[in-house]
């Protein structure tokens, strides 16, 4: 084992990230000067409402946003000390999937309807792990890892033959098949039923400890952050309004927006007359 050269260096270090979209009616700043870092093996939750710039931040990390002039990205994103924003598309392909893997909100549309799920996982394995000889065995192992029953039969299924929860498990299996160092999960449970949500979150929790990978969890639900992420970042209209340890943010939120979001978490046994609403006028 080589000694870790810079143990102080975080796995992912985002500095002064700015994302601007240029449309017909002028420029729109989707992300405005945000910075955060993720250590090895750590989980960071990015919480914020719809349109606050969470997804574009995640996509910017491997330059998946539309090319200029439509979209301009400023700042630095260091991955193990290397600035991803300076890399060319060809070099980035080594990082996509291999070092940084993604799972998305909508499992049903994330899988190509014309291929079997096993075929799609195999594609990922072949792409980044050419040394694997028995790809099918690897696919079955990956499906087994995400707790799909009868993986030796299920890998021959087409996406439409699986339930939403199973499709999301397949997406997770596909993302993890190449042993990424960082998993970006963009609202992985939003499209799913509540009971399935809990199962998927449990699975992710188990897998990240087992594989020792870092996770960037994007969500607008504070409820799933607790017990899953060590740190949390709250985004509001493209800016980070609050950041810190999950426990301290939950216990003692500073920003009124965070307080409002936390108030939205439904609690067992607490009777709520109406759903809490966020009063934007007071937030400015």
């Amino acid at each position: 084992m080589k000694p870790e050269p810079a143990s102080s260096q975080p796995l992912l270090d985002v500095r002064n990230l700015e994302i601007t979209f240029h449309g017909r009616d002028g420029a729109m700043k989707a992300v405005d000067n945000i910075s955060f870092a993720i250590e090895k093996g750590e989980t960071l939750a990015v919480v914020g409402e719809s349109g606050s710039g969470k997804s574009v931040t995640a996509l910017a990390m491997t330059q998946l946003l539309p090319p200029p002039p439509v979209c301009r990205v400023g700042g630095n994103i260091f991955f193990e000390g290397l600035d991803l924003l300076q890399l060319r598309q060809r070099e980035l392909r080594r990082f996509r999937g291999k070092e940084i893997a993604y799972i998305f909100q909508e499992p049903s549309t994330s899988l190509n309807p014309v291929f079997t799920v096993g075929n799609q996982i195999a594609e990922a394995v072949k792409l980044h792990r050419p040394e694997v000889n028995d790809v099918t065995a690897e696919v079955i192992r990956a499906l087994d890892l995400v707790k799909i029953r009868d993986p030796d039969k299920r890998h021959k299924d087409y996406p439409h033959q699986l339930s939403g929860g199973m499709q999301q498990r397949v997406m997770i299996a596909m993302a993890l098949a190449c042993h990424p160092k960082l998993l970006v999960a963009d609202e992985p449970t939003t499209a799913l039923d509540v009971t399935i949500q809990a199962q998927i979150m449990d699975l992710l929790k188990e897998l990240k400890t087992k594989l020792g990978m870092s996770v960037l969890m994007i969500t607008h639900n504070f409820g799933i952050v607790n017990g899953f992420a060590e740190k949390v970042v709250v985004m509001f209209r493209g800016k980070i309004v609050e950041a810190g340890e999950t426990q301290s943010v939950l216990r003692n939120p500073q920003h009124p927006y965070t307080k409002a979001l936390i108030a939205c978490i439904p609690r067992l046994g607490v009777k709520q007359q109406r759903l809490t609403t966020i009063d934007y006028a007071t937030l400015g």
């Binding site: 980035l92 392909r93 990082f95 980044h128």
Partner: peptide, 14 residues
Amino acid sequence: QRQFVLAAEVLGQS
């Protein structure tokens, strides 16, 4: 725009 194309892109497909 379909997500599986994005999913293929994030996987590093050419």
